[in-house]
Write a protein that binds this DNA or RNA. Structure first.
Lengths: 226, 226
DNA sequence: ACCGTAGGTCTACGTTGTAAACTTGTCAAC
DNA sequence: GTTGACAAGTTTACAACGTAGACCTACGGT
């Protein structure tokens, strides 16, 4: 304990910085993640952050890496390839779900971050096990992961409204906007307005999203074989 | 010709403004679309734009609307529902493809813009024709369209590098980054590096993307029925 | 005892979106 | 005609942003 004085102990830690930046993004939206705000949160001058991050993109990348680090990759087992793949993709979504406003940052980091790479490799393993060529597995895997990220970032309610008042206002506005449509010209949209604005259940939403991706993969595979 | 003087003829037109804003986005990236730059392009003071757009978001929305307006919705015919659906989704993608850097703006405008609504309604028609309930059609359609937008925005080479020099640099960097990976730990990723960085053909890329979405829809449908 | 260096500060610049008040060209009504 | 309202564009200004560059300062190795 003698090796580090009080002042020294206060030094910033890039991990902590990325963590609280992620918290800001979660609660106030991505555009609220500002060098100045993050610095203030750590009682430090804005420029201090540049000792730990090259620039703001570097900070955002760290946020992405952090989320990807939360992926709890399921252990390989004897289930069929598509069942295992579903488990991997579910783990991926589970890691991003808590951060719908920041999840987009994960996209650029999958092929850089350690656990992103692990998941990508695993995904390709399973796809090739299913019968895809290496190249096809790469393209299919790429698109599937992109779709799942989008699934999270467009989760209903991922709009950047933080306090419930503006949140409710925005919902009311959307509702009114759809309600103002002619039910004659847009019968299906108007009758499904409720679902379009806010789906029945978030869990169902994600389940359907993953179902669509997995079913797409299987479907494309049988088409390729034919 | 007497009704409008030279000066009056020079007045700004919101459509033209949105069009040239879209051009900026296409060539220099979305973040290059700046009130000031757009104003300068039209020989006008920045604040002049605020007579035609409430704020910058309004301008971005107009860009989104403009792209959605380019959707050439195929006429209904006697083909099976899934074939027609594929045609609609292809038309959607075709409208966005010329604008990979701006396509993300279309997301928020589908349920607002005229032709966005037309396409959404049409999509739901076909989905219900296939057998989905109205609510399921809404959720499935929503996700499918989101995935296709992402397909465009993440099109390889959609990164905001405009001139071929930085473009090539970025590619080289990615290539080097993947090449530096251990082929032992990531055998599949490293062997598919070329495809992951830049797919074989853009047309194939989009075809696969649409295939995945349509196959997913069909697959989910039969699962629902079972 | 020294000094290099890592970590933090201070100051400053250019860019962004936009609020507020002002000017000006056009047309309708008297 | 004159007037007066109104729409379009200008001017000025501000707060917030990312970040460059020079400075300080205390610790650790030699």
């Amino acid at each position: 304990m003698a090796t580090i004085s009080k002042e020294t102990a206060k030094r910033l830690d890039p991990d902590k910085l990325a963590a609280s930046a992620l918290e800001i993004a979660d609660s106030e939206g991505l555009e609220a993640v500002t060098i100045r705000k993050l610095a203030q949160l750590h009682d430090v001058t804005p420029m201090a952050l540049y000792r730990h991050f090259q620039d703001k993109n570097d900070l955002l990348a760290a946020i992405g890496d952090r989320m990807l680090g939360d992926i709890a990759l399921p252990a390989p087992n004897d289930d069929p390839w598509d069942v295992q793949l579903r488990a991997v993709l579910t783990a991926f979504v589970a890691a991003l779900r808590p951060h719908p406003k920041a999840a987009g940052l994960a996209l650029f980091r999958i092929l850089v971050s350690e656990s992103g790479l692990a998941m990508a490799e695993r995904t390709m393993e399973l796809l090739t096990a299913g019968g895809f060529s290496t190249d096809d597995a790469a393209e299919v895997g790429r698109q599937s992961l992109c779709s799942l990220i989008t699934l999270v970032t467009t989760e209903p309610g991922a709009g950047e409204d933080t306090d419930p008042v503006a949140r409710e206002d925005s919902l009311r506005f959307k509702r009114a906007s759809l309600a103002a449509l002619s039910p004659h010209r847009y019968p299906l949209i108007t009758s499904a307005a409720d679902v379009l604005i806010c789906p029945t259940s978030t869990d169902r939403y994600y389940e359907l999203g993953i179902d669509l991706v997995v079913a797409g993969i299987r479907g494309v595979l049988v088409d390729r074989k034919a």
